[in-house]
Amino acid sequence: MRLKFSLITRREFLNTLFGGWLIAFLSGSFYALLKFAYPTLGKEPDFVVLNAKDFTDIPANSVKPFPWGGKLGFIFKRPDNKTVALKGVCTHMECNIAYKPEDKKFYCPCHKGWFDMDGKVIEGPPPKPLEFFELTQEGEKLIVAKKGIKVELPKA
């Protein structure tokens, strides 16, 4: 059947149809590609459980590293013999920090950031203080947890 009037020409109709199809196809493909290329993200742990024995004989005024997820954590025996735990990652650009026992400060060599023993920024570009964790001991287990996280270990 031939229509007397048409709002669009046959060419316009086909171009819109195939153009739309092409756009739909390309955006669908691109979405799938991006979805696949984008990594499945892990999560920073809320707490880690360490073997307490490995961390009992830290000398005063020094640190011992432990893995906080994929990042660096420190068990820090302060000069006053108090033991604390903190994340050993600079708050500026995420470089690992080091403890300088002679200055009693934490230091980031990447952009020369300095933190005091309580993690406060003294000098350099870091915007925030270091992150400290809660440290509790349950028998043989040393539990390092984010502040405010309630840790419930499975009963063995």
Partner: peptide, 29 residues
């Protein structure tokens, strides 16, 4: 070593130095 601190006086490749220096200019706050 993901758990070690980077070496002292670490610097990037020379063509990142201008960015590196720029970052150092800005205080944390």
């Amino acid at each position: 070593d993901p758990l070690a601190a980077p070496p002292e006086n670490i610097k990037p490749e020379w063509y990142f130095l201008f960015l590196f220096q720029t970052l150092k200019l800005f205080p944390g706050d």
